[in-house]
């Protein structure tokens, strides 16, 4: 069975849970930005939770099915249609052979995950089907999908229509969105006042927001503790000797606009990082549109682990609901 791409949408790519073990060579984990939504979509149709799905940002694709399959769409609210008839989000439905899946305009959130029973079965690269366009790895020839592509799937019928994730388990960012941050890494480079200001100010998602990283604007510039720059670091006080970057780490080049590195992160570089968004909140970043208001919330390690447990608990409840 194949999915015929009639219209690819804006930047629709094949993603799973990513490839582990190559970050030391500059090849990032990749995979779904909102892993919670990807797992839920796969559970709804009866796939392994890490099966490859389509991740579409802001605009949905138009896809013709060559065989009947169970489908589910989770994540952002982007009205779903099958041959023009509306379908429920976070709920499985059936697309019959010859029918076309399409979408209306985005209502909230940023990214949808389209799971098809059997999963997308394009070839794996370094253990994953996730698309990493910078390194031309995974997906279809290492790129986003295009009109005319025919994506192979596992071809199973799936578990059929009507399986649904209850409203409280459809995880999404609040308003304003709150992203919890564990200070660390090069936090000591900031003055106390700058550190406090970072958490007090309201930031907005900048237009430069993609799978590599999300940039934020609108808060006060950050001041650095005076020092003579170490050899090899570069002249700007925000520079360090190039080091590794953590997923979720927050760099602030020149002290002006924070950038949170995401799934397709560069693996290292010469900017100081003030800490990292906790693992539990990485999914939420994937659902932020440009201009969304965001507050960074300071947490400690115990709170970060509690949040991680809570997110895992929600996934466990979806599993229970769906049996």
């Amino acid at each position: 069975m194949t999915l015929k791409i009639k219209n690819p949408g804006l930047a629709t790519s094949i993603q799973d849970l990513g490839r582990i073990g190559f970050f030391h060579l500059g090849i990032p984990l990749g995979g779904a930005m909102d892993r919670y939504a990807l797992r839920a979509a796969n559970m709804l149709v009866g796939n392994d939770e890490g099966a490859a799905c389509l991740e579409a940002v802001f605009m949905g694709p138009e896809i013709e099915f060559t065989q009947t399959a169970t489908v589910a769409v989770t994540g952002a609210l982007l009205p779903i249609k099958v041959d023009g008839e509306y379908q429920e989000a976070w709920t499985s439905f059936v697309v019959k052979a010859g029918q076309t899946l399409s979408f209306d305009f985005l209502q909230s959130g940023a990214r949808i995950y389209i799971a098809v029973s059997g999963g997308i079965t394009t070839p794996e690269a370094l253990g994953s089907r996730s698309t990493y366009p910078i390194g031309a790895l995974g997906g279809v020839e290492g790129r986003a999908i295009q009109a005319g592509d025919e994506l192979p799937t596992g071809g199973s019928q799936g578990l059929g229509a009507g399986r649904t994730v209850s409203e409280p388990l459809r995880r999404k960012p609040g308003t304003p969105a709150s992203l919890r941050v564990l200070p660390g890494l090069y936090w000591h480079r900031l003055t106390d006042e700058a550190g406090a200001g970072f958490f007090e100010d309201e930031w907005k998602v900048a237009p430069e927001a993609d799978r590599m990283g999300y940039r934020f604007k609108g808060g006060r510039p950050l001041e650095f503790v005076d020092r003579e720059q170490p050899f090899g670091a570069g002249a700007d006080p925000s520079n360090i000797v190039d080091g590794c970057y953590s997923y979720g780490s927050i760099q602030v080049p020149g002290g002006t606009e924070p950038i949170v590195l995401h799934r397709d992160a560069v693996s290292g570089g010469g900017y100081f990082t003030l800490g990292a968004v906790i693992s539990a909140d990485m999914d939420l970043i994937g659902q932020l549109q440009p201009h969304t208001s965001v507050k960074f919330e300071k947490v400690d390690m115990a709170q970060a682990l509690e949040a991680r447990k809570e997110r895992k608990g929600m996934l466990a409840r979806i599993r229970e609901e769906l049996g």
Partner: peptide, 19 residues
């Protein structure tokens, strides 16, 4: 020694570059 979020340990041997 420091943490990078709840999934990374970060170790800086020195703040300046040397072999």
């Amino acid at each position: 020694y420091t943490f990078g979020g709840d999934e990374h340990v970060y170790v800086e041997m020195d703040d300046e570059m040397s072999l």
